[in-house]
Nucleic acid binder design. Structure first.
Length: 305
DNA sequence: CGCATTTGACCAGCGC
DNA sequence: GCGCTGGTCAAATGCG
């Protein structure tokens, strides 16, 4: 099971849709001088400006690295909390009233709350504990989306969805919306979207199944930006901010080959996961492009002030 | 007019 | 069997 954390306030994909302009001055001027932001500079000034920008970019890079490591640390802390909880409450923490067949198959991690807690609780052990029930056929992915806006139960993920129901559930005052992929019935994917009971600014999107088609944004590149803001993609090939990549989820593809029985408490494994997360982020062209765009955007705003 | 969304009704699983 | 609950259906409604 996948669980992704996406902070829509970052909106990286959206940023990456912009043409990447790192504004590295190029020696286009025949006289050796440069026009930087409309200003003609001498070679010395250019060197100074470049050095200044370099240091600024370095500082930015350092800041981002710190943010990344902080993210990983908090993730690890949460992970260990989950492990503690799981060891204290070996299996049956669900309130009896919630025990529906499908929920037992798919959502037996609700009892651990939000943010990363749900992952790694749904392993093959669960299916072993319930030999009577069918093994999960549809891949279930849970995605957490932090959204500052209150524009309904909308989680943009690049796919088109058709809403077919809405319910107020017992354990959460905010309504839960039910979506089917608009390519249904050929595409069996369903999605449930509900605001987190703990944090109303967090949307919890639960995907069931996998798309058997490309997202419309990729099938029609020209219209891609229309779906692209706050883009997250639980099963598709596009980028989802890789916090989940730290964990041995079933949807983690090749990022963690030891997904069968991970020992999350091992410091080596943790370190390895952090490294994998960092490399998967840096390898992702979308992420690097978005990062570069964000940096250049900051440089622009700094310059204009 | 066609399509998507809304929303009350209905159904099925589960506990008592 | 009954009540509770989550999930789905389908008629009504809205929108472009």
């Amino acid at each position: 099971m996948n669980t992704s954390w996406v902070d829509t306030s970052l909106d990286l994909n959206h940023s990456s849709a912009r043409p990447l302009r790192l504004e590295t001055p190029k020696k286009e001027q025949p006289n050796g001088n440069l026009i930087v932001f409309g200003k003609r500079l001498s070679v010395k000034e250019e060197t100074g400006a470049l050095a200044e920008e370099l240091s600024r970019v370095n500082a930015e890079n350092k800041k981002l690295t710190e943010m990344l490591s902080a993210m990983c640390e908090s993730y690890n802390a949460l992970q260990s909390q989950v492990m503690d909880l799981m060891s204290k409450n070996p299996e049956k923490e669900l309130s009896p009233s919630k025990k529906r067949k499908s929920e037992n198959n798919n959502d037996n991690n609700y009892n651990f709350g939000i943010v990363g807690n749900s992952e790694s609780s749904s392993t093959d052990e669960d299916s072993c504990k319930k030999p009577r029930e069918e093994v999960i056929k549809a891949k279930v992915t849970r995605v957490y989306v932090r959204t500052e806006t209150s524009d309904g139960l909308i989680v943009k993920d690049g796919y088109q969805w058709r809403k077919y129901g809405q319910k107020v559930t017992r354990d959460n005052p905010s309504p839960r919306a039910y979506f089917r992929c608009s390519f249904a019935p050929s595409c069996p994917v369903k999605k449930k979207v509900q605001r987190s009971a703990d944090d109303q600014s967090v949307m919890v999107a639960t995907y069931e199944g996998e798309h058997n088609h490309l997202p419309p944004s990729q099938m029609e590149p020209a219209s891609g930006s229309s779906h692209g803001s706050a883009s997250l993609n639980p099963s598709g090939p596009t980028m989802s901010l890789g916090v989940t990549k730290c964990k041995p989820s079933d949807g983690g593809e090749a990022r963690n080959s030891s997904s069968s029985k991970p020992e999350m408490d091992s410091p080596q494994v943790r370190k390895h996961l952090v490294e994998q997360m960092a490399t998967s982020l840096t390898k992702d062209p979308n992420f690097t492009a978005a990062l570069a765009a964000a940096i250049s955007g900051r440089m622009f705003s700094a310059k204009s002030n």
